[in-house]
Design a binder for these strands. Structure first.
Lengths: 213, 213
DNA sequence: AAAAAATTAATCCTTTTGGATTGAATAACA
DNA sequence: TGTTATTCAATCCAAAAGGATTAATTTTTT
């Protein structure tokens, strides 16, 4: 990938990670890109201080599991401090769940340690341009959606399932669909059987997990 | 953003969209980038044919709502045909839900029509480099999580809620936590009150919606 | 048209929940 | 050190759900 145009200034990057090796690599590789300069710190508190005292920075990169992070709480602190400057998470274990949570917490991106350095440089330029970067292609979906479903749900069953998902009781579903309570009961049982759930609440949870709701 | 290095060949792009205007813009803007050449077609069938007969293409871009698409079914057809070549979706209405479904269907990216053309060029280069591109920053989250919660759940209540989310019954929860059934019952009721649910199933659904589970 | 699958419905009985109330022991806090 | 909030627990009753079985009616498919 080509370098940024020479007319732009350097991108100032604050990298916080408790793995010295990561810090070393970041300094060595990123600094020599020409269009980037890097400051490194070992934990969140140091990052917050550095941002206040050694700023301004164009991008902040925080290790997800470093001291002081406390999950995404640390991220939120930095996002609040950083204002409109993008804050990205770097982690060795990127999941789709982490992605969603990070987005909610205001992250501008997730950088995976499993990617080569040149991808890191790319990601940084990408984020710096105002985009949100997530290594979606390597986010393996959670353990794998439970197989379940010993056969697909019929149309009527899907309808009933929809009501179950709203927490309705059999009588309500019956009158909503113009059926007898016994019939609804039967459909609910059938749904539970197919979804391998032991009760309606479990059925709803499973249905959500496998994308039926 | 700088152009790709001149040593690389042109990126051949197949764009399928039933909006002639989009096609025009794609041809005019992308072709003049120097490192890209574009072929345009008006629907999915034409795209499949073009891919077979005018190929090879490096990237395929499909409009989400064009004739023949049938939701993501059309995407899957093209993904199957395209093999390892990335297939992206272009849409005027990018949502997080569409993102998840597209990823599952094998899309290499979503391109939003609300983005300026230079972002389109960027996205294409990004996808071409093997990354997956999604305009996450403009994917507004679903309607907005219901407020609910007339007070936070206590620790014990969160624990019980966890079991509710697994579809456990009071007796099971009681023995799991070493409590009496009556106590669990009380906690469940309290949870329902705070979450403004009328029963446990609704409580679980609400808890999931507001991110408690 | 015959066979298979889906939908509807009823009965019977057990277990689980929902809902209300009352009380006591603990932990947290001002 | 009181005061408050949490946690724990019991009782009672009505409503709802779980579970099994049987069977008539549609719809779909072959």
């Amino acid at each position: 990938m080509a370098l940024a145009t020479p007319t732009e200034k350097q991108i100032r990057i604050l990298v916080a990670d408790d793995h010295e090796m990561i810090l070393d690599v970041a300094r060595m590789y990123l600094d020599q890109q020409g269009d980037m300069s890097v400051v490194t710190v070992p934990d969140l508190d140091a990052a917050l201080n550095a941002f206040r005292e050694e700023g301004p920075f164009d991008i902040v990169i925080l290790d997800y599991q470093m001291p002081g992070m406390d999950g995404l709480a640390g991220l939120q602190k930095m996002v609040a401090l950083a204002g409109d400057r993008p804050v990205a998470i770097i982690t060795g274990n990127a999941t789709r769940n982490l992605m969603n949570q990070s987005l909610d917490a205001g992250a501008a991106g997730i950088i995976s340690k499993t990617l080569p350095m040149r991808s890191l440089a790319n990601s940084i330029r990408f984020i710096h341009s105002g985009e949100t970067y997530m290594p979606l292609h390597l986010m393996q979906d959670e353990p794998k959606k439970r197989a379940a479903e010993s056969g697909p749900l019929s149309g009527r069953e899907m309808t009933v399932l929809g009501h179950l998902g709203e927490g309705r009781k059999n009588k309500e579903i019956a009158s909503a669909l113009g059926l007898s309570e016994g019939t609804v009961k039967m459909h609910v049982m059938s749904i539970c059987r197919k979804l391998e759930a032991t009760n309606r609440t479990q059925a709803v949870v499973i249905a959500r997990d496998i994308g039926l709701l």
